[in-house]
Design a protein around this nucleic acid. Sequence first.
DNA 1: TTCGTCCTCACATCATCATGTGATAAATTT
DNA 2: AAATTTATCACATGATGATGTGAGGACGAA
Lengths: 211, 211
Amino acid sequence: MQIGIIVYEDNNNLRESLCNLITFSKDLLLLGNFSRTELVEQQVTELKPDVILMDIDMPGMNGIEAVKKVRHFDQQVQIIMLTVFEDNQHVLDAICAGASGYLLKKYISDHLVEAIQQVMQGEAPMSPGIARMVIQCMQKNARPAINPYNLTPKEKQVLTHLSKGNSYKLIAANFNISIDTVRSHIKSIYLKLKVHNQVEAVSKASQEKLL
Amino acid sequence: MQIGIIVYEDNNNLRESLCNLITFSKDLLLLGNFSRTELVEQQVTELKPDVILMDIDMPGMNGIEAVKKVRHFDQQVQIIMLTVFEDNQHVLDAICAGASGYLLKKYISDHLVEAIQQVMQGEAPMSPGIARMVIQCMQKNARPAINPYNLTPKEKQVLTHLSKGNSYKLIAANFNISIDTVRSHIKSIYLKLKVHNQVEAVSKASQEKLL
DNA sequence: TTCGTCCTCACATCATCATGTGATAAATTT
DNA sequence: AAATTTATCACATGATGATGTGAGGACGAA
């Protein structure tokens, strides 16, 4: 069973090279090639490719937008981004948009077929340099963000309970303290976070991963 | 300049193999090797390694906890995780904890030196299989999570304003509608999200990235 | 056309929250 | 020893929120 492929690349020479590489491989079947992504939804729907090769930087709607569009109605098709630059925020954006891997253009002739087979096996072709960027991005999102507001332990506990929607009364009961003490802690939290009500406090804490 | 390395691995045979590989490479310098991670902070502080090789699964404090401890006081040292399994949540946890790459144990003899050089160059050694897991994890965090609660456009707008800490009064003014209409929308939001106050609603929306 | 959903508004009542002003005691830091 | 921080509690008042009940117009789908 051959792997069906469509190609989006605005550079005519490169697109021809890609098409040739695909055509010359007996495992791959070229279903279509396009210089623009305007009709990507219709084309993907009709041609039902297994893999899409997508240039990141294209005029008009760029490759990342096209990926998002495709992912709106198809979670199965594998998408490999093609790019000239390695150290590029675009690559991260493309991954978040739903790309399954990417390939530097300078490696295309040597690794295109291999990359396509990798994504079909559920793996993600990716250079070590990009891998590091991806890892750093994950670590940034994972960090607990250590307390830039100097919340005391008690205040943090109270804030956690608040975020669950508990009333002052419930929190007081939970900690075996009086409601006024809870009030007091919450007043202090507002001061430190520079907010003026529960919702703002919880929202801020949630966004900055303080809980 | 040689690359200073310390090793954490509880399997004595494997640890010896690792040490031999390092010792035999002229670019690498073995600073220490340990079967337990209890003293990891002290050891890293004293030996000042460039790279730490860390087994993920170890008795007592496991490798992931050790990574977290090290990252508390050292963001520079490169950490490579060693693991037998590829499809393992542990690998993701390790990355979030602060590891810079990982190496499957079956590839150690062939790729250890290469992996060490990669992390020192700011790259991340990682198999395509793990790369895919990492990508999927990122995509999960990035997706807007399309409205499993059937919030109407107006309700979503109101919810967004709520999350900024705006009062009913302010929201009403913003939309040029009456306070009672705002109430009405919010009641509806509570029903759909199955919550009973603003804080729960905003907290839930924030966690599930509905905003 | 009828049904359902969405957006709109009104009134009422009780609960809860925000804010201010104090105060005491223990623990920690200086 | 003195100062600061943390955790605790009290009282008071006005504002805001939660909940119930009810209803009318607009719009699209069945």
